[in-house]
Design a protein around this nucleic acid. Structure first.
Lengths: 150, 150
DNA sequence: TCCTTTGATGATACAGTATATCACAAATAA
DNA sequence: TTATTTGTGATATACTGTATCATCAAAGGA
């Protein structure tokens, strides 16, 4: 309950540094994602926002706000799952390119890796031999997280 | 025009080896995908099938058939694009796990790599340290293919 | 201060992607 | 032959996302 407050404050700070605003609605969406502590679909977000506040949250707004939060790297989209998850490093200062995710097929929990940087660099090498330039590469692989091997 | 015939024959052969059937409808979908020679959405497939044959192809059938073709590894789904593409190796005998795709953001052409095997193995290592087991890992990265740098 | 501009949000419609279900026919097994 | 499984057709509906226009409020200039 305090962990995500720090993340919000950090996002707030980064926004003002960047000359943009973390508005009430944007904060609402980001907070909801942080509290959920898992990947959510856009409509799950809509519902959660509506449960925890009185002003109804239009689905359109959620999509728009997610675009904003992604552009600022506060949120990632899991393209393979059509879900959104708060970036693990909102509160960090370092830039972090090349996000990498392990997605559990059973419990659907997501772990954001920081470790396998060389994975993408080897793809990059292979790609460049085909004259292909990677753009904002993101890696998503699914499997089974040790916890739910039933 | 002869290239994909070989692929169909090979698929036919594999199916009979496996005790399953490449029915007329399934062959229709697979042929359409091979002829297109690019990634297609499910509904693009529906339309193309309808153009080249008189019996209307229901969208439901395309989805069902795509599931079948994926299970047999004749077709891959690009999860990040919601499109389907014929496997480059339908006619090969070797098993090929870990498909890897480079997807061009501009022309949307897709190249299936065979080369960057070590990419996934380094993810695998990182994952196993978290007690996470990869399952049918597939890699999709987008960027710009040398051809359409405008 | 007033006005204008810009950015954010609300509201509605609709396009695109996918699944659930039931019915029926053909192929296979008992 | 009868029963069962498998593939397909048909319809409905859920889920995901974009287009568009209106409104409102904050920011900055005259």
């Amino acid at each position: 309950m305090t962990d995500f407050k720090e993340a919000i404050e950090s996002a707030e700070r980064k926004c003002s540094q960047r000359g943009i605003k973390l508005t009430r609605r944007r904060r609402e969406v980001l907070t909801t994602l942080l509290e959920a502590n898992r990947a959510l679909s856009a409509y799950e977000l809509v519902n959660l926002c509506n449960e925890s506040s009185n002003e109804p949250m239009p689905a359109m707004s959620v999509y728009r706000i997610l675009e904003f939060l992604r552009a600022e790297q506060f949120v990632h989209k899991l393209e393979t799952a059509n879900k959104y998850i708060a970036c693990k490093h909102i509160a960090c200062e370092h830039e972090h390119k090349q996000p990498q995710f392990l997605i559990c097929n059973d419990c659907h929990k997501v772990q954001e890796l920081d470790t396998a940087v060389e994975a993408l660099s080897s793809v990059e090498t292979a790609a460049s031999m085909l004259n292909f330039k990677l753009l904002n590469p993101q890696l998503e692989v699914s499997g089974s997280c040790g916890l739910c091997k039933t």
